[in-house]
Every structure is written in structure tokens, then in C-alpha cells.
């Protein structure tokens, strides 16, 4: 292929298509300033985090050793324990998601403008959701452990707490985007407020909400695999233990188990989601 692009012609093209080719001078200056600051901050961050060539080379070498030691993946004598822990992880994700969804729904209704037109309740409920969402699942796990003790029960409660807020926000946004026409229709036939909600809004939002719940179940399967690191049940406990004791073959096996389960759950959940969204509403 011949080289056709000739840099010297660029300026004449730019001159002809002046308004297309040139960003505003101010805009360009701002972009450069922004990019410069960004790079500066990145370099500062790398220095602060002690990135040095020797450390990178040493560490990557060690990482390579770990990777070699991972083969072949092998469960050791604790295979049954791991399976049980994996079941626990799934149960934590499922229970946490379901509990969160059930608890979040009424609060989400309170925070929806088209159902409850008081700004005060909406404001309070929404800000509470935001506050709870600001705290990570793992931190909630720590807090619940000091309440109900170590074990998967604390994990369920942690996932439920974190998701409660996420669902509250999502559900209320979904309810607010519902089409008001069915509600008006029911009102015109003399329906009560409860009937307006049940027959006007609910049929519209249920498929969407079901999809959201399934999506969160998927992502919770991932977060439930790590919640054991602080002692809140599931496979994370074994994973962090085997990493700390440098049993790399078992680590590899556990990671593979997690990846397999996540893939299976993803598959089932995406199937269900398309089935739900494809189903016709009443």
C-alpha cells in the first residue's frame, strides 16, 4: 500500500475547512491544561504509591513464580468444605438480593414523585439511600459481624443492606418513568389510589424491576465471593486463607470454581432476563 497521507497538505486542508478543523483556542488551551494536570496527578500518584522499577521487576518476578506454582490447580483435602462454602456464597447472594428487594420496594414507592407528591419524604428517603450506598458492602459486613457474630448470616445482612439502598434508588427511578396514561385511565373509571398503583403502575414496572433484581443477583454472586475475607461467610474465607498461606494450587482451584459459578449464574440470569423482558405485559 502506498503512503498517501502527506503532512504538508494537512495545513491547506485545515485552512479550507477552517470551522471544522479548529477547536476554539480557549477550548484547546483548556484541554491541554486539563490533560497536563491529569498526567501530573498520575505521576504524583505513582510516586506516592512507591512505584519503582526495581519493585515492579521484583514483584512481577514473584507474580510469575506464583503463576507457575498454580499449576495444576488442585483442591487439596478440603474439596467438600469448598463446595459447601460455594453454596454459602450463592445463598448469601440470593438471600441478600431477595431481602433487599422486598425491603426496598415500599421505600422506593415513598421516594417516587408520581406516587407520593411530598418533596420532604422523597428528599429524606433519597438522601438515606445515598448515605447507605456510600458505604461499601465489605464495610457493612464488618459492622454486621460485630452485631450478629462471624459467619454467613452477617454476610447476608451486609449484602441486603448495601443492596437495599441501590434497589431503592433504582426502583424509585423506574416507578417515576412509568407512563401516567394507564393511571389516568383507572382514575377516570373511579378507581382508588391503591387500584391506580396496582393496575396502572405495577404491570409497567414489574418486568423492569425483575430484570434489575436478576442483574444485581449476578453482581452479588461476585461480591459474595469476597465477603468471607472479613469473616462473613462464603468461599472468600478459604480464598484469602489459601493466598496467605501461599497454597497456590488451591488458590487457582478456588478461583476457577468462582469463575465457573459466576459464568453459570450469568448464563441463567441473562436467559431469565430476556425471557422476562420479552414477555408481554397485561
Amino acid at each position: 500500500m502506498t503512503q498517501i497521507f502527506d503532512p504538508s497538505r494537512f495545513s491547506s486542508i485545515a485552512a479550507r475547512h477552517h470551522e471544522v478543523m479548529r477547536l476554539g483556542a480557549r477550548q484547546r488551551q483548556m484541554m491541554f491544561a486539563g490533560a497536563f494536570l491529569g498526567v501530573l496527578l498520575l505521576v504524583f500518584g505513582l510516586i506516592e504509591a512507591d512505584f519503582s522499577l526495581s519493585r515492579i521487576i521484583n514483584g512481577t518476578g514473584k507474580l510469575g513464580d506464583f503463576a507457575v506454582l498454580m499449576f495444576p490447580p488442585e483442591p487439596g483435602p478440603l474439596f467438600k468444605t469448598y463446595l459447601h462454602a460455594l453454596g454459602e456464597t450463592l445463598a448469601i447472594a440470593l438471600l441478600g438480593t431477595v431481602i433487599a428487594a422486598i425491603l426496598a420496594f415500599p421505600f422506593a414507592v415513598l421516594a417516587s414523585r408520581n406516587v407520593l407528591p411530598f418533596w420532604l419524604t422523597r428528599f429524606v428517603v433519597r438522601r438515606s439511600f445515598d448515605t447507605i450506598r456510600g458505604v461499601d458492602t465489605l464495610i457493612w459486613a464488618l459492622i454486621w459481624i460485630s452485631v450478629v457474630g462471624l459467619g454467613p448470616f452477617a454476610g447476608v445482612l451486609a449484602v441486603a443492606t448495601a443492596d437495599f439502598a441501590a434497589f431503592g434508588k433504582l426502583f424509585s427511578e423506574t416507578i417515576e418513568t412509568a407512563d401516567p396514561k394507564p393511571v389516568e385511565g383507572i382514575r377516570s373509571t373511579g378507581g382508588t389510589a391503591a387500584q391506580e398503583f396496582r393496575f396502572g403502575i405495577l404491570p409497567q414496572i414489574l418486568p423492569v424491576i425483575a430484570g434489575q433484581i436478576l442483574y444485581y443477583f449476578e453482581s452479588n454472586t461476585r461480591s459474595a465471593t469476597i465477603i468471607g475475607i472479613v469473616g462473613a461467610g462464603g468461599i472468600g474465607l478459604h480464598l484469602s486463607e489459601q493466598i496467605r498461606t501461599l497454597e497456590w494450587q488451591r488458590v487457582a482451584f478456588l478461583v476457577l470454581m468462582v469463575l465457573a459459578v459466576v459464568a453459570v449464574i450469568d448464563f441463567i440470569s441473562s436467559r431469565l432476563r430476556t425471557a422476562i423482558s420479552g414477555a408481554k405485559p397485561i
Binding site: E48, A49, D50, F51, R55, I56, N58, G59, T60, K62, L63, F66, L138, R222, S223, T225, I226, I229, L239, S240, I243, R244, L246, V251, V255, V258, L259, V262, A263
Partner: peptide
């Protein structure tokens, strides 16, 4: 798919404690 904190656990062993692993 591998959670970031699992990577962090492994990197802490390889690169040493501190923000670099994070």
C-alpha cells in the same frame, strides 16, 4: 470477573504491603 480485592491480596504478597498493590 476476579474481584479486585483478590488481586489485591495476591499483589500484596508479590509487591509488598502498601498502596502500590491497591
Amino acid at each position: 470477573t476476579v474481584p479486585e480485592i483478590v488481586f489485591a491480596l495476591i499483589f500484596v504478597l508479590a509487591y509488598g504491603l502498601g498502596p502500590m498493590a491497591g
